[in-house]
């Protein structure tokens, strides 16, 4: 049936591709653009593994058809840091070992990053709320919450005036 030309800006780069109407955005990102960092865990909007930043907001890319995203600007896990580097948040996930198998991790990073973008010093409760739509089966969430807290501290520390009294 209907096939559509799609232009997307992903991680700052413009991509063009074709998709049938029924292709979800996550399938387009993964299968057509080969950006496989975004994962699919349930394809019905519950697990959050497919989270991406769409026009500045974290959303589930399995709940949108690719054709709907034509013209949109998207950030995926591959775009959270300059190639070859890790963002402060990613580095904090490493520091606290906030992952095990790594499958939910891209979605967790997206959910946490969009929290920190809006709220530089979130409480534990705010962190838990922000990642509550992302299921993780490995970690029990503890080290993820620790990672986001650590990132918040580091990010705010970057902006804080230097203290001389230690």
């Amino acid at each position: 049936m209907s096939e559509h030309d799609i232009t997307l800006k992903v991680n700052g780069r413009t991509y063009r591709g074709k998709a049938s109407a029924r292709m979800t955005l996550v399938d387009f990102l993964r299968d057509e653009l080969r950006l496989t960092g975004t994962h699919t865990g349930c394809e019905h909007g519950v697990c959050g593994a497919c989270s991406i930043i769409f026009e500045g907001q974290a959303i589930r890319s399995c709940l949108m058809f690719a054709v709907q995203a034509d013209g949109a600007s998207i950030t995926t896990v591959e775009g959270l840091a300059e190639p070859g580097t890790l963002s402060v948040l990613q580095d904090c996930f490493w520091e606290t070992h906030a992952l095990q198998c790594g499958f939910c991790t891209p979605g967790m990073l997206i959910a946490s990053q969009t929290l920190l973008d809006k709220n530089r010093l979130p409480t534990d409760e705010e962190i838990r709320e922000a990642i509550s739509g992302n299921l993780c089966r490995c970690t029990g969430y503890k080290q993820i919450v620790d990672a986001v807290k650590l990132a918040a501290q580091r990010l705010s520390g970057l902006n804080a005036p230097v203290k001389s009294d230690g």
Binding site: S2, S20, A21, R22, T24, F65, V67
Partner: peptide, 11 residues
């Protein structure tokens, strides 16, 4: 879990 085919229109 792929949708059945459909046409799409952006109104």
């Amino acid at each position: 879990m792929k949708a059945a085919e459909f046409d799409y229109a952006r109104a």
